[in-house]
């Protein structure tokens, strides 16, 4: 499951449309949308609301070891080199009010640009920005400490899209929605890869399970991606049962003549592991 936090309606709408999420009723102050793989909450603007919404969302469903949490939204910049609509992965979040810094653990390789971010409790003007290199927003320093109650640092991400040069006059809801919509394929591709990597951090496979897994991958001609999917499914299985060895052995007689059959076999094995 991927937990997504947005602040404003124009940031939320493109995510809902992109993943065909369904709105859930009865969540009072917060808007919550859901599919089988994603939970989305719209927090509203500001650090406190972002912290509250993050905690509320995590309280709805206990996160599992391969789940991730990410925030995506707009932010200002005083760096003339940044371009409105440009997507950044945040590598450091500073709370302007407390001076406290937070560092997401960056394990998954990516091609985004990275930047630090400072969270203020109110909109800031250009002359107020203490560090010309950082982006500024109003939520991340609420989101991060709340998220880290439920997630380890390698499972927390924060993305910001440059909206303005600390002068939001020309920023319209349509523009924001367009920028977010454009960012979503790369955003979810990163999160999907991070999810598979998070799977590797759980309980390890023993030598025999690894051997069987490798044999299966050879005989069923799995790709690297398919191997990671199967690996993640076996790890998940091992959280419930002590060993996956006996179950995996049952699949050793399977064969696959082509890519379609490989895919079918993989889906079948994963289904059995998920039972």
């Amino acid at each position: 499951m991927i937990y997504v936090i947005t602040a404003l309606a124009p940031e939320t709408r493109p995510v809902v449309e992109y993943l065909s999420l369904k709105r859930e009723d009865a969540h009072g102050r917060f808007e919550i949308y859901r599919s089988d793989e994603t939970l989305l909450i719209r927090s509203g603007a500001g650090k406190i609301l972002s912290a509250a919404a993050t905690a509320y969302l995590c309280g709805l469903r206990q996160p599992e070891p391969t789940d991730l949490i990410a925030q995506i939204g707009i932010g200002g910049t005083s760096d003339a080199k940044d371009i409105p609509g440009q997507l950044f992965l945040i590598n450091k979040i500073t709370d302007a009010a407390t001076g406290k810094d937070y560092y997401p653990d960056l394990i998954t390789a990516h091609s985004f640009k990275e930047k630090p971010l400072i969270t203020y409790e109110r909109p800031v003007q250009k002359h107020e920005s203490p560090d010309g290199h950082s982006l500024v927003d109003m939520e991340a320093a609420g989101f991060y400490p709340s998220a880290q109650i439920f997630f380890e640092p390698h499972r927390i991400s924060c993305f910001k899209i440059v909206s303005d040069y600390l002068d939001p006059q020309g920023v319209t809801p349509d523009k924001v929605s367009r920028w977010v919509a454009e960012a979503l394929p790369a955003f979810f591709d990163y999160l999907n890869r991070s999810q598979l990597i998070a799977g590797e951090a759980g309980p390890a496979l023993n030598a025999r399970e690894t051997d069987i897994l490798k044999s299966l991958c050879r005989q069923l001609h799995f790709t690297k991606t398919q191997y990671h999917c199967l690996h993640a499914a076996v790890l998940k299985y091992k959280q419930k049962y002590e060993t996956a060895e006996h179950l995996l052995k049952n699949f050793l007689g399977l064969t696959a003549a082509n890519k379609t059959e490989s895919k079918k076999r993989l889906d079948g094995i994963i289904r059995k592991l998920e039972v």
Binding site: N91, K92, D101, Y103, D105, L106, I107, E114, P116, Q148, E152, P153, H154, I197, A198, E200, A201, A204
Partner: peptide
């Protein structure tokens, strides 16, 4: 490498709940 400025090394080194196994594969 991407350089990230920090105030004190313990803010990064001693972060709670880091994943040793994943970090070993991508140490900073």
């Amino acid at each position: 490498s991407e350089v990230i400025r920090i105030r004190h090394y313990k803010d990064v080194f001693n972060r709670p709940r880091q994943n040793f196994r994943l970090q070993k594969q991508s140490p900073k």
